[in-house]
Design a protein around this nucleic acid. Sequence first.
RNA 1: CGGGGUGUAGCGUAGUCCGGUUAUCGCGCCACAUUUGGGAUGUGGAGGCCGCAGGUUCGAAUCCUGCCACCCCGACCA
Length: 492
Amino acid sequence: MAKDFVKRSENYSEWYNELVVRADLAENSSVRGCMVIKPYGYAIWEKMQSVLDNMFKETGHQNAYFPLFIPKSFFEKEAEHVEGFAKECAVVTHHRLTPKRDGTAGLEPDPDARLEEELIVRPTSETIIWDTYKRWIESYRDLPILCNQWANVVRWEMRTRMFLRTAEFLWQEGHTAHATKEEAEQEAQKMLKVYASFAEDYMAMPVLQGVKSPNERFAGAIDTYCIEAMMQDGKALQAGTSHFLGQNFAKAFDVKFLSRENKLEYVWATSWGVSTRLMGALIMSHSDDNGLVLPPKLAPLQVVIIPIFKTEEQLEQINREVEKIQKALQDKGISVKYDARKEYKPGWKFHEYEFKGVPVRITMGARDLQEGKCEIARRDTLEKELTDLNAVVPAVERLLVEIQANLFEKARRFRDENTRKADTWEEFTDILENKGGFISAHWDGTVETEERIKELTKATIRCIPFDSPLEEGRCVLTGKPSRQRVIFAKSY
RNA sequence: CGGGGUGUAGCGUAGUCCGGUUAUCGCGCCACAUUUGGGAUGUGGAGGCCGCAGGUUCGAAUCCUGCCACCCCGACCA
């Protein structure tokens, strides 16, 4: 390597950026704020997609696709929604280019091709979808509508960070329409549970589940539910959100249905989404100073086999053993790569696959083969052990399960160790300045206090956890009475 | 959008203050040989509109103006 990989403890941001680029996941493009996702990174996204997609289908949802462009006027229909997104929209004003009229080289938008109404590149699709749903819904028999869209969206962010905040990002957005408030609320909560189990069971990333404070609520929602994860630098990352939209969009787009009682009523709505930001979360949750660490359930490559040999005869002997093991592993549904390239030395390959986060490595050399053994190394702990050739398959199967569980446990322990209670303002600021992480504290429930705390400390309320017990207390800033602790943290 | 910084080969860089031979070095790349149990070694070689566009000058990576991009810190956000 040209330069030593920067250590996580030295400069977390730089570490993260380098990790993304050097593990071959993505790179900055020549387009402002946009990122190129490279094949290896995209393979991880595809894995995430397919797992999520199955979960959505199991909960009764269908995929659909809506336009990339949204007429400007659609945004004007929901007051809070437009306020939330107006500042970060890419706007299409022309439909044709023409050579520059002042005679200099280059092209310019043709003034004769100006659009009558500007089109907005979707920052989210509520408006275009509710404009469409209006035509789909007449009676309670048309409900519920449970659609999901896999798409790209554009938000013209001032400051970007690979995977965490890019001008264009890939995501999934579910949009549902219901006949009753209760059903819509349940849907929003149900989808949050889906996200939480994806995060914990597949990404091995523990998350807090809760509801957002009014300040952090989605523009246009009645309630925003969220999953919040803690990164290894102690900062919080909002990993997914599910919104109960009430009748806000139905009213804005005039979507009514005739109920069983023959009454005309507005439809109840939800929307929910997760994005390529999850890739950032995955990277920051588990990776170490040796590179990426991927949970086996999402690793595009679970096992790599590396031969060590001096002579052709030895290689052939290894090839024969590998063939058997590779086939047996593949039969168990495990993805395996045999890297017998002669152009790279074993040591180089070890580092390469470690950097890319491959969970299990099998090293097969002539020496061990004599004794009927090979070496199995695990990425999470970097431990190595010799295993009998005929025990390799069950050992790998067991190891993949173990690594998955260990990554989750390790992340959960880290989060719990870095979650602290604060009962006074001194404790609160001391934790933020010296320790970081989550702070469980009382809050008087007002927007003013939350904003004041943000001004003073940069910490925000990440969520009001569902499982937070009722408990009498006093607001950490104002001393006013509070009935429940909420989670504060600095966030991405 | 405010403050700070950077832009020289695929990557990382020296040189910029104080203009002057053929633009420095390392990694990587190519060829050959020897190597292969934790990033091999030697020899030879290829690769540069010095971010872009103007300007000053006999002469610009270096000075001036404008633009663009990226990074960091804020504000904003999935």
